[in-house]
Design a protein around this nucleic acid. Structure first.
Length: 550
RNA sequence: GCGCCUGUAGCUCAGUGGAUAGAGCGUCUGCCUCCGGAGCAGAAGGUCGGGGGUUCGAGUCCCUUCAGGCGCACCA
């Protein structure tokens, strides 16, 4: 019996209590699905619910009386072994071993699809993350968004949403001029100009540009700058894509800001917003009256000198997403950009959309390493490439995805290396490879799933703990997707791995050499394989590999 | 000054109103005669920043206060 099934049984019990007049509650006050959870204490049974505590007051009865009534109605349910009322009115439910053990078969037969749901079916989502400027390599901060954004993308898809992952390339503006000037200076073997990009990587980009255009330094100054900008941009973007490839992160759409300017989309955006009545002219500039919608101040779209602002491009970009058919737009931004939220929502409101429904901004706090914040323009910046090489993609992705985005994170670089073997990712991966080792050994002793499955034999307390955990995956996935919190998957996997390791310590799948193979061994093999499947499915959601051997 | 985020074990962090607040690291003690010891069992370690409030019940919700991070451009 799965928690969802149990939840429905409880709803039905409540409904029948209302129907026969025992419970004085309006029919619509009966929850369609009653919240059941795994109690912390094993003595409290397999499942527990506080529904009696929540409904008693409205029904004019006491929690315990309501709980007693429900317990009586539940006791006869097939698969339910025992129901008891505890404390102020908790309902503690214990299942028959056979009913609980069915989960092993359910998981094995569902395979890769176990944990997927239709909770977000029909939702069309544009998920934008990283969107780092193409003027330098990705650094530690981007690495966090890469790990979280990609995991979120996988999660939303697992919950049934239609997701497009998008990277916005800020390839317009004066920053690109500075970048081009810096590339050109390095190509000449000179220092970068004041305000330029001092990083060592600029030398690499300059070399790459020179390789494609050996005549760069012979060109007229203006022409050389243009070539440096164009090829430097291409080289840097290619470097970013290489980095993301090596991290297993792939975008569906790479969206260039420059195309918004060149196609006239920015001017059109101003015009469209003007039609909506939110644009005004003042002091020679063109403004958007974002203060109509909870922004602190109005924003300039076209400067007095005729140049569009970055904000204008943002508006055009928003309209592009809208026009391309994405009702739901999720932005994953760093905390240093949180000032954009109101502006972004104001754009949506000015465009006639509902900011709350159409825009969702997830703010990720910055990552500190060794207590020192990393900035792209610092000489000692810690780049994503270095981190991947240093710690490996799996450990890096996992350790960044196991914390909520809004929690400031400080990782000690030295410690991550020193303790890499104790990193939780290895704990989970080790559990997975151990299930594979069990499979190999079982095969060697001719323990086969197809020869028998008797869930009533899964009675050890470590086995019921594992089975209970297995039933939780679908709701963990759904909840993590709805809350946009991939870290819940990691925490769940660590718990399952712990349950598995404890079980492994207590119960053998493969018999000792002098013992015969029994249905107990075969049934445990089902459970082992169910654990392997769930660990693999969960690690996949985080973009982390599930190795068969380590 | 205004706004957002965060204060939980020595450290890094989980815990979307429930029962005795958890995990990893670090410290201490046990377990390899058999499926992988990257594991397991146990110990020590807490005024959940402080103070009010809401209710059967608050780490969780509200108010207030203190501390830290970040942001408040005709920059990108």
């Amino acid at each position: 019996m799965t928690p969802d099934e149990l939840s429905r049984v409880l709803s039905a019990a409540l409904a029948s209590a209302v129907a026969d007049g025992t419970l004085a509650l309006p029919a619509d006050a009966v929850p369609a699905s009653v919240h059941v959870e795994r109690p912390r204490q094993r003595e409290h049974g397999d499942w527990a619910t506080n529904v009696a505590l929540q409904l008693a007051k409205r029904a004019g009865t006491t929690p315990r009386a309501l709980a007693e009534d429900l317990a009586a109605r539940l006791a006869a349910t097939p698969g339910v072994k025992e129901v008891e009322v505890a404390g102020p009115g908790f309902l503690n439910i214990t299942l028959d071993a056979a009913a609980a053990g069915e989960i092993a078969r359910v998981v094995v037969e569902a395979g890769d699809s176990y944990g997927r749901s239709e909770a977000l079916a029909g939702q069309v989502v544009n998920l934008e993350f990283i969107s780092a400027n193409p003027t330098g390599p990705l650094h530690i901060g981007h690495t966090r968004w890469a790990a979280l954004g990609d995991a979120l993308e996988r999660l939303l898809r697992a919950a049934g949403a239609d997701v497009t992952a998008e990277y916005y390339i800020n390839d317009a503006g004066t920053q690109m001029d500075m970048f081009a000037a810096s590339i050109l200076a390095r190509a000449k073997g000179e220092e970068v100009p004041e305000g330029g990009y001092p990083g060592e990587y600029v030398k690499d980009r300059a070399a790459e540009v020179l390789e494609r255009r050996p005549d760069l330094l012979d060109l007229p100054a203006e022409e050389a700058l243009r070539v440096a900008r164009e090829l430097g941009y291409e080289a840097q973007l290619a470097a970013i894509r290489r980095t993301l490839d090596s991290f297993g992160v792939h975008f569906d759409v790479w969206f260039s800001e420059l195309t918004l300017h060149e196609s006239g989309a920015v001017e059109q955006a101003v015009a469209r917003l003007r039609e909506q009545g939110h644009v005004f002219d003042s002091e020679g500039a063109v403004w958007l009256r974002t203060t109509d919608f909870s922004d602190d101040k109005d924003r300039v779209m076209i400067r007095a000198n005729g140049e569009p602002t970055y904000f204008a491009a943002d508006a055009a970009y928003y309209l592009s997403k809208k026009d391309r058919g994405f009702p739901q737009k999720i932005y994953l931004l760093g905390a240093d950009h949180h000032g954009y939220i109101n502006r972004l929502k104001a754009i949506a409101a000015c465009a006639g959309d509902d900011p709350e429904a159409n825009i969702e901004v997830l703010i990720g706090q910055l990552v500190n390493i060794a207590g020192e914040r990393m900035g792209k323009r610092r000489g000692n910046a810690l780049y994503m490439d270095d981190l991947i090489e240093w710690l490996g993609s799996d450990a890096l992705r996992y350790s960044l995805a196991r914390y909520p985005a809004d929690s400031p994170l400080s990782l000690d670089g030295e410690e991550m290396v020193r303790q890499s073997n104790d990193n939780p990712v290895f704990y989970v991966q080790y559990a997975h490879s151990r299930t594979c080792a069990v499979d190999r050994n079982a095969a060697g002793r001719a323990v086969r799933r197809e020869d028998g499955f008797d869930p009533a034999l899964l009675v050890h307390e470590t086995e019921t703990a594992v089975m209970g955990r297995l039933t939780e995956l679908p709701r963990v996935v759904t909840q993590a997707a709805q809350l946009r919190e991939p870290h819940r998957i990691a925490r769940y996997l660590e718990q399952l791995a712990g349950d598995f390791h404890k079980w492994y310590q207590e119960c053998r799948v493969t018999p000792y050499p002098d013992e015969p193979v029994t249905d107990t061994h075969r049934t445990r093999l089902w459970l082992n394989d169910a654990v392997r499947q769930v660990l693999a499915n969960g690690l996949h959601l985080l973009g982390v590999s599930a190795p068969e051997r380590m």
